[in-house]
Design a protein around this nucleic acid. Structure first.
Length: 312
DNA sequence: TCCCAGGCCATGT
DNA sequence: ACATGGCATGGG
């Protein structure tokens, strides 16, 4: 029995191919051949298909979700409450008119409000390796430790694996789990330890969802866990804790800060001190409240337009 | 072949 | 405080 709902959004959306457990999007709309996004969100198998530029068709395998809840949840999940025209301010538009024209093509990109725990584990896999390997790790973790579920959609069966529970990863042998982490045993150990922390309550991600926590405190708290540095901490804040003011700085961000914004700090290596310096610099031309949201748009624009990378 | 990829950390100066 | 190398694999 499928639960079905059509949701109207109040703005244009461009749903793109999912990364990790459903981070971001690439759905090319057109010719009636709509692709769909399938995932398990909050333990519920779900399929989302974009049927117009501002309408989503949501199909769930569970009747336990009320229509109203799905509606609210999906709108929040796609951060549809964020006003696109606030991401880049007028001052930015005046100062960087040429760049602004280029990034406009990416304004429909949505950052997902994802599960904090899943985001934490996922980004712990994203260290110094290519995007395809990151995806592979997440996929293997789900296939090996998640629960298999299927949902029927348009007459065909879609197989899904849930993201493994904290308890399941907490009980895993790091050496065995390392087959899922690119054979990196240190990473496997860190992931198991983090899962144990969530399972036994030592890591309370719920309390970290408090939007009044200063960004620096939030970052430092997350960094107490082995395997989480400034960058990963900021990613968890941005994608998992709804902190759109968090501004993760990776190799690509450092590159565009140097190239597009003429940052001298970006020319030297990304030491912790430089990281904080770049973070402060970025907030002088980005809206501090939405620095990470703007940064993510710049990030994808840089990768696609300048680096000519295919993977989203 | 070499360098880099959505980094982090231990070690040496 | 900063520099360096290890971790690990795949793609350009």
């Amino acid at each position: 029995m499928l639960y079905h709902e059509v949701i109207k959004l109040n703005k244009t959306i461009n749903v793109k191919q999912s990364l990790f457990s459903g981070q971001s999007f690439l759905w090319e709309i057109g010719n009636g051949n709509y692709e769909y996004y399938s995932s398990i969100i909050d333990n519920v198998p779900i399929i989302i298909r974009q049927i117009s530029e501002n309408t989503l068709e949501v199909v769930s395998g569970s009747k336990s979700i009320e229509s109203l809840l799905i509606n609210d949840f999906i709108i929040s999940y796609f951060s549809n409450d964020i006003e696109t025209n606030l991401i880049f301010q007028e001052s930015f538009k005046r100062r960087y008119p040429d760049l602004y024209r280029i990034i406009m093509g990416y304004f429909s990109l949505r950052i997902l409000r994802q599960n904090p725990y899943e985001t934490m584990i996922s980004f712990m896999c994203a260290q110094g390796i290519g995007m395809h390997l990151i995806r592979k790790q997440i996929s293997m973790l789900k296939n090996n430790y998640g629960e298999k579920t299927s949902i029927t959609f348009s007459g065909k069966e879609v197989i899904l694996y849930s993201f493994p529970t904290p308890e399941r990863l907490a009980a895993a042998d790091p050496l065995v789990l390392s087959t899922c982490t690119n054979n990196n045993k240190t990473r496997a150990t860190n992931i198991v330890r983090a899962a144990q922390g969530v399972a036994d309550g030592r890591i309370n991600l719920q309390t970290l969802c408090d939007p009044t926590i200063p960004l620096a405190d939030l970052r430092n708290t997350l960094c107490l866990n082995p395997g989480i540095g400034f960058k990963i901490a900021d990613c968890i804040a941005l994608f998992g804790l709804g902190r759109f003011d968090a501004f993760p700085i990776d190799t690509h961000v450092r590159q565009y800060l140097g190239s597009w914004f003429n940052s001298k700090t970006a020319l030297s290596s990304l030491t912790p001190a430089n990281y904080l310096m770049l973070d402060a610099e970025a907030r002088t031309f980005l809206n501090p409240e939405l620095a990470g949201y703007g940064g993510h748009i710049l990030f994808h624009c840089w990768r696609k337009e300048v680096k000519k990378l295919q993977s989203f």
